[in-house]
Design a protein around this nucleic acid. Structure first.
Length: 210
DNA sequence: CTCCCGATAT
DNA sequence: ATATCAGGAG
């Protein structure tokens, strides 16, 4: 089974296990999702959702993030890891959107990545989950770890892993594969204790100990 | 490469 | 105690 066939089999099995998988981050608007995704760096989604529940009620529009003092915004996300950096990213981001994009979230990777605090991972998450656009594959810590365990890539650089995955994955699945691997990573193929016994991929995974 | 720097699981 | 969690900037 070559890598392309393997990816299809992996997607098929994971889709069966997680039929309607989508981002676990709660959001109403594309901008909400952009904020939530920035907050999610090195932070669990549950913790992000706890904070955004209040945040999105207080900050309805892009202008609201631009208006407040940085200290107040940082304080509103205080329970999030790296809250000082993230607060600054989000406020700068709001200003860039207002000045350069008429207050709207852009719909291309190049434009998204030009915004403060937004890298390829964040851009891909927002494009797929807010707009349904498959321009790339979001490589987060789970995707990075599991793609290597499954033998889909030998690279460790997220950008190269993204290239490898794009080569062997049909475009229609570029959005799904990230969410599917994230679910697998959170529930079964955990960083510290991968549970090979209950993994639906254990018979085609070179890293399985069974 | 380092810094950022909270909450939770183990 | 420490490893890890939907990373990105400098």
């Amino acid at each position: 089974m070559d890598k392309s066939e393997k990816v299809l089999e992996i997607i098929k099995r994971l889709k069966k296990k997680y039929p309607n998988v989508r981002t676990a981050l709660n959001f109403n608007t594309p901008f909400d999702l952009l904020v939530a995704t920035i907050l999610s760096a090195q932070t669990t989604d549950a913790n992000v959702n706890k904070v955004t529940e209040k945040l999105f009620k207080k900050y309805k529009k892009v202008e609201d993030y631009a208006k407040v003092s940085l200290e107040e915004l940082q304080n509103d996300i205080k329970s999030i890891n790296y809250y000082k950096n993230k607060g600054k990213y989000i406020q700068d981001l709001a200003n860039h959107l207002l000045e350069r994009f008429n207050g709207e979230v852009p719909k291309t990777i190049d434009e998204l990545v030009s915004l403060p605090g937004v890298g390829r991972k964040t851009a891909n998450i927002v494009l797929w989950n807010a707009f349904g656009i498959n321009e790339g594959i979001a490589v987060d810590t789970h995707v990075k770890r599991i793609a290597k365990l499954l033998g889909l890539t030998e690279n460790t650089d997220p950008n190269k892993i993204e290239e490898d995955l794009m080569k062997i994955t049909p475009n229609e699945f570029w959005g799904d594969i990230t969410n599917l691997l994230i679910m697998l990573g959170r529930e079964i193929c955990k960083a510290k204790s991968p549970n090979h016994k209950i993994c639906p991929l254990n018979d085609i995974c070179p890293s399985s100990n069974l």
